[in-house]
């Protein structure tokens, strides 16, 4: 069949040779960017790299960056896979609030802490499953499907907490947010474990490849005998699960569940982290560790702005600058410019 639709948009993109993992790790733009941000931080604050050991755990600005960046990193782990399928999940911030609210409310009403934690993770899974069903069964565009929970989620969280900031003193929940393991803050340990686990699962099983295949070309995936539905369901459910973990950490950190502010706008940070990590919003190739690195870049900038005395909101300006730079670099216009450069390979 001839396809008479005239496509007016330029479709060619420059081939991006895929770098090999270990050999070129240190020449990746993300790694260089992180190094640059850390270097600037060090110049602003010479004690930046100092790490001390106190009361059985590490302290220092660098540890702080890891610790503060962990919730977004965890969100980014789930978000990476969603974006790899050419989707997006706008609801993860709201799901964080729901998860924190669930755990806090249950614990304060006398439910044993481990049960509360499992219940919180369960609600996260349910929220993710809901998104997945909207995307796969009702075939609603991801951005629209997840918008529903983004709008209603905070209301649900408040319904659970009945509008209060539910504070708790349960040691397990507090430990998740502020404790330490082998000297490292728990959020960092959890994020690192989740990153390793998720990476192992997607790379040791065929999930990673199949997700990428669905993201690159959904139609070809169907012709190759791949069923995308179950994959999408899993991916969205996992994103909800990651959001629930993040929600627990944030709640544990402030020893309470704040349905209004927990995870507010973090979905956007998570998307940004994934994009910085090199996963295209058009789906396809993804890297979980790189997305985590992206989250760390965001947090390192955040910390840098704080220690240099700017107001924390200035961070937003920097973030928007980062997005603009990435967009311009990825745009067809710059691709054309690069191709015109003398010596550029064809």
């Amino acid at each position: 069949m001839t396809r008479p639709t005239v496509d007016l948009r330029p479709t060619t993109q420059p081939p991006m040779p895929r770098a090999r993992p270990i050999a070129s790790f240190f020449t990746r733009p993300q790694v260089i960017a992180l190094a640059a941000v850390l270097l600037v931080n060090w110049l602003l604050f010479p004690g930046f790299f100092t790490i001390t050991w106190q009361d059985g755990r590490f302290f220092g600005s660098l540890i702080d960056v890891l610790n503060r960046g962990a919730p977004v990193a965890i969100l980014a782990i789930g978000m990476t896979m969603v974006i790899a399928t050419k989707g997006v999940d706008l609801s993860v911030g709201a799901v964080m609030a729901i998860s924190g609210a669930t755990a806090a409310t249950l614990v304060t009403s006398g439910v044993p802490a481990p049960v509360a934690v499992f219940a919180a993770l369960g609600t996260g899974l349910l929220c993710g499953l809901w998104n997945g069903i909207l995307v796969t069964v009702l075939e609603i565009q991801p951005i629209i499907a997840t918008l529903v929970l983004m709008v209603a989620g905070r209301g649900l969280a408040q319904l659970i907490t009945e509008g209060y900031i539910v504070t708790f003193s349960d040691p397990l929940l507090i430990f998740i947010g502020t404790g330490s393991f082998l000297g490292f803050p728990m959020p960092v340990v959890i994020a690192a474990l989740l990153m390793i686990l998720a990476t192992l699962i997607v790379r040791r099983t065929a999930l990673g490849l199949l997700i990428e295949a669905v993201g690159v070309n959904r139609s070809a995936a169907r012709f190759a005998g791949l069923s995308a539905g179950a994959l999408l369901l899993i991916v969205y459910t996992f994103a909800g699960f990651c959001a629930a973990i993040s929600g627990l950490i944030v709640a544990g950190d402030i020893r309470g569940a704040d349905a209004n502010n927990a995870g507010l706008w973090l979905e956007l940070d998570a998307i940004l982290a994934v994009v910085i990590g090199g996963t295209s919003l058009m789906g396809g190739r993804f890297s979980i560790p790189m997305a985590v690195l992206g989250a760390m870049i965001i947090q390192a900038m955040n910390t840098g702005i704080l220690i240099s005395g700017f107001s924390p909101e200035f961070n937003l300006v920097v973030k928007s600058a980062v997005i603009i730079v990435i967009l311009v670099l990825q745009s067809p216009i710059s691709a054309r410019l690069f191709r015109r450069l003398p010596g550029a390979q064809k």
Binding site: R9, V88, I143, L268, I271, L272, V275, L281, L316, V317, K319, S320, A321, I323, I324, L327, V328, Q330, S331, P332, I333
Partner: peptide, 15 residues
């Protein structure tokens, strides 16, 4: 730049 509007306006929101 041929990018989805949500990401451009997201940058706009931060800015």
């Amino acid at each position: 730049l041929r990018v989805p509007s949500f990401i451009v306006t997201l940058a706009g929101m931060f800015l």
